[in-house]
Design a binder for these strands. Structure first.
Lengths: 369, 369
DNA sequence: TTGTAAGCGTTATCAC
DNA sequence: GTGATAACGCTTACAA
């Protein structure tokens, strides 16, 4: 509730009556400022939003009145009249995953620099109904919307277009390149990791994969590994690919599962860092020396994980930059300027101490696939 | 921008003209729904917000019209007329720190369940001007505001009270108990850790502390350790307390610094988990076995860190619960219900593998302070 | 450069 | 239960 009125301020009271005793109201309105400054409300409005159109002297008077009364504009009234709210919405699966937190943080900073505030909603991987969220944010009157890993892209977009709300997709894949989307090349990310291990001389792999069902990004990552291996004429038996869900413990379990197969690969590629860290921990618990006995690599930079386990070879995803670009894109669209090109961000391999060439000991002990 | 009008819709056109051809407009308004349903706009409004006051049959007609037109209410107009916006604001230092992310996530979930959306703003530890942010959110017309570790509490509160915006402080300390605040007992948290080590038989400590300047929480944590030690007649020489900033690398550096003193404590208490993990990593790099040679404990549960380094003895801060309570508190205040009691959350010691009784080897090798 | 006044799309009061 | 209509607090086209 933005303002609390005294009883006498109810609908029956005439506006002119209020005008006389602003002391009875909770806070100042534009007409209070106008009266104190001795100008019209239009001038006050202009002084607030287009100061260049107001004479220097008048401006000073108005500003003084604003200061004296502690006037703060009523955003909803302003939005209703001007048809712009200076708010931007963002929908993310969760804010608890540091990769999304980073994007949101960057986005928030970017739009705030232009006077926009950010409305954040989490769809919790659709448990709450993504389309409902989009509609809610439209109802809130956001000037633009950022969608992250949208699960119902087509519906969300048609809704946004019907309401003429500018939008941009993040963490998204757009094969045709027609949609405003910024994302990562997940295929390339996991391919980078794989090539790195191939170049070190590894020929004997296992993959700890995430579930790929309905997740294009995860599919791309898995394909990136498999196709790169195929490029080197290496076929991976299906049993060497373990599917896991997202957790440290799952990474441990998957590692055990691989070792239980009775065949030790020289390198393990994990399709995300949480799994990789779990696998590494399990390897060490089981007496493996990393990377002497086995190399472990991840495919997705978890900022926090990287600071905690700074030895993991992985791929850096510039999620901060993505947030910035998404913000700038929307701001341009809203401001009627031509937006920057949307694009596929390139990821970058970060080689750390968890990978090395297979040791002689490994080579002699193992038969290749 | 919520709606785009065609040229003919400019101010010169009379409302009654618009009414006839809604096809030329971007989307439906309440009067379009009313016309299609054959009722007045007042009825439509009631059907949307107080369905119980509308006859079942009328309700169905209106709902059908809403569906047909894809009508979505204009939040700003609604907010202006009703004086409530169904948005709640939250100011946090950053969303990148997982403890705040967790609180925000819980808050978001709690308020969304009641139909509110969350506007998030980060003050980046005041680099952006906290009071400005508060004013911005008031201008946005939030129905309530959550402040986190507010650095300018007095000013923020006076502003909020002037505008009659309900608020609640989180991660906050309120010695008098007059303010609506939910926080943690940091003194107790670090005291718990200290007592645990004392009970294991440790007498020889070092502390890796955070900067305490202007940070009441950090001060409390440090006092918790020192005063608990004093309770056992243990005085810590100042050189055994190393001040660090917040990072993994700083934890490493601080550990080296302590060892460089030439005296090895049997236990190290770190005032946050990031420092603790850094210290542990450094210890292991330097050939220490944890906890055989040295015990390491933290004072602040970092969710991600805990999942990555699941061996760290630390204190769990229920930040999720705090977000929930903060949300419920505001919702109660807004709804005119009596709010739940604000309180100091109790933290809870989580003993893991990084602490143990000092070994005989340690005991014989060391002289006590 | 400034003032006048007509919107912006709802809700809430009051009469029926 | 429902309808007519006056707010809600601001922006902006147009006139001065």
């Amino acid at each position: 509730m933005l303002r609390q009125l005294t009883a006498s301020m109810a609908y029956t009271t005439k506006p002119t009556e209020n005008a006389c005793n602003m002391t009875r109201r909770a806070h100042a309105r534009i007409d209070d400022v106008a009266r104190l400054a001795g100008v019209s409300i239009a001038t006050v409005s202009r002084a607030m939003t287009k100061p260049s159109q107001v004479r220097e002297e008048t401006l000073a008077t108005v500003r003084e009145a604003v200061r004296k009364l502690g006037y703060v504009a009523h955003g909803h009234a302003r939005a209703l009249a001007s048809r712009k709210s200076r708010t931007i919405g963002a929908i993310v699966p969760t804010i608890q995953n540091s990769i999304f937190a980073e994007t949101i943080f960057a986005l928030q900073k970017t739009v705030r620099a232009e006077g926009y505030v950010l409305v954040v909603a989490c769809n919790e991987y659709d448990l709450g109904g993504e389309i409902g969220l989009v509609q809610e944010l439209i109802e809130c009157g956001v000037d633009g919307l950022v969608l992250t890993q949208s699960l119902h892209r087509a519906e969300a977009i048609s809704l946004l277009e019907r309401f003429r709300v500018p939008y941009v997709l993040t963490w998204a894949y757009d094969s045709e390149g027609h949609l405003p989307a910024v994302g990562f090349d997940h295929w390339r990310a996991s391919s980078l990791v794989t090539r790195h291990l191939l170049e070190l001389g590894h020929r004997d792999f296992a993959i700890i994969a995430t579930t790929t069902e309905g997740n294009r990004n995860a599919q791309d990552r898995l394909r990136g590994v498999i196709e790169t291996l195929q490029g080197s004429e290496i076929e991976l038996p299906g049993s060497r690919i373990v599917q896991s869900s997202f957790s440290f413990a799952e990474g441990r379990k998957a590692f055990r599962q691989i070792i239980d197969l009775g065949h030790r690969p020289t390198a393990i590629i994990c399709l995300n860092d949480t799994l990789a860290i779990g696998a590494m921990a399990q390897a060490m618990d089981m007496g493996f020396k990393v990377p002497r006995d086995i190399s472990v690599a991840g495919c997705e930079d978890l900022e926090v994980a990287a600071s905690v386990v700074p030895t993991l070879t992985t791929v850096r995803y510039p999620s901060w930059e993505m947030g910035e670009v998404a913000g700038r894109y929307l701001l341009a669209l809203i401001g009627g300027r031509s937006p920057p090109e949307t694009r596929m961000f390139q990821t970058e391999l970060v080689v750390r101490a968890s990978t090395a060439a297979p040791s002689k000991r490994m080579r002699t002990k193992r038969k290749f696939v």
